[in-house]
Computed example of a mutant assay.
Amino acid sequence: MSPDLTAPVFSPAALVVAAVVFAYLLLVEPLWGRRMFEVLKRDRDTDPGLYVRFFGTGMAVFWGLTGLTALTVLLSPGAEWAHLGLHGDVDWGTVAGMFVGFAVAAVMVTLLARWKAMPVSPTLDPMLPRTTRERWCAVGASVTAGVCEEIIFRGLLIAVGVSLGLPLYVAAGAALVVFTLAHLYQGAKDMLLVGLLGCALTYLYLSTGSLIVPILVHVLVDLRALLLTPRPATGRSGQFTPAA
């Protein structure tokens, strides 16, 4: 089952709004995100409130972009929420099987990381929470990323691309490129992993026809990364302490 993208018709006003969202994602988010992340890495240990401000700002921006995405539908009599994949008409038995498999894989990866004391990515390390407040912030950031990024990158961008005459898979590929570039701050190596995750999420969307599955998977992936990744202990012992 593919998304309901057979005939989305966005109004001129909606296309202007979509163009603003696209321009931000392509031209602003990669560079601004990298700058903000460099500040986080530099001042993480000396500024107690920086972690919450970093993720709080990101959450505010992406919920704002999601609001603009909703506006494109509200401004377009020829576009519906289903064109953005926002419907629940999926095979929930298959979805349940996917999540059982994901849960097993997540537990195995987490146990292996703790057992082998695997080194934390330099990109991920500054983003691991250290206090209860930061853990709640990480939960909010994970939910925001799962919901907002899926609606924007896979919902809006693919639907608009199809409405402009692009074949479905070309529009999906273009959206995947923008999704990957938006994570420029993570560096080339981690951007490759982001691209692979984006491919998997795009496949889930196109194969189920709904954003519900990729949203849930995206949230769980981020929660596992931020809350279950072992964090290096202070000092040079090489031992690891849990992030949770």
Rank of each mutant, 00 (worst) to 15 (best):
L157D: 04
L157P: 03
I158C: 02
I158P: 02
V162P: 08
L164F: 03
L164T: 10
G165Y: 05
G165N: 06
L166W: 13
L166M: 14
L166P: 03
L168A: 10
L168V: 11
L168F: 03
L168N: 03
Y169A: 00
V170E: 13
V170K: 10
A172E: 04
A172M: 06
A172G: 07
G173Q: 07
G173Y: 08
A174P: 03
A175F: 05
L176Y: 01
V177R: 02
V177A: 12
V178L: 09
F179E: 01
F179T: 02
T180W: 03
T180F: 03
L181V: 14
A182N: 00
A182I: 00
H183Y: 05
H183T: 01
H183F: 04
H183V: 01
L184F: 15
L184N: 04
Y185N: 11
Y185D: 09
G187P: 02
G187F: 07
A188Q: 04
K189D: 05
D190Q: 12
D190I: 00
M191D: 01
M191Q: 13
L192G: 15
L192V: 15
L193W: 15
V194K: 12
V194E: 06
G195W: 10
G195F: 12
L196V: 15
L197T: 15
G198D: 02
G198H: 08
G198P: 03
C199W: 08
C199R: 03
C199H: 00
A200C: 12
A200D: 02
L201P: 01
Y203W: 14
Y203E: 07
L204N: 09
Y205E: 01
L206K: 11
L206C: 11
S207E: 14
T208K: 11
T208E: 12
G209C: 05
G209N: 06
G209I: 06
S210Y: 04
S210R: 04
S210K: 05
L211D: 00
L211E: 00
I212K: 11
I212N: 04
P214R: 10
P214G: 06
P214L: 12
I215S: 11
V217F: 15
H218D: 08
H218L: 13
H218W: 10
H218N: 11
V219K: 07
L220N: 04
V221G: 04
V221F: 15
V221T: 05
V221D: 09
D222H: 13
D222P: 09
D222S: 09
L223M: 13
L223S: 05
R224V: 01
R224S: 05
A225I: 12
A225S: 14
L226Q: 04
L226P: 00
L226E: 00
L228K: 13
T229Y: 09
T229E: 12
T229Q: 13
P230I: 09
P230L: 11
P230W: 07
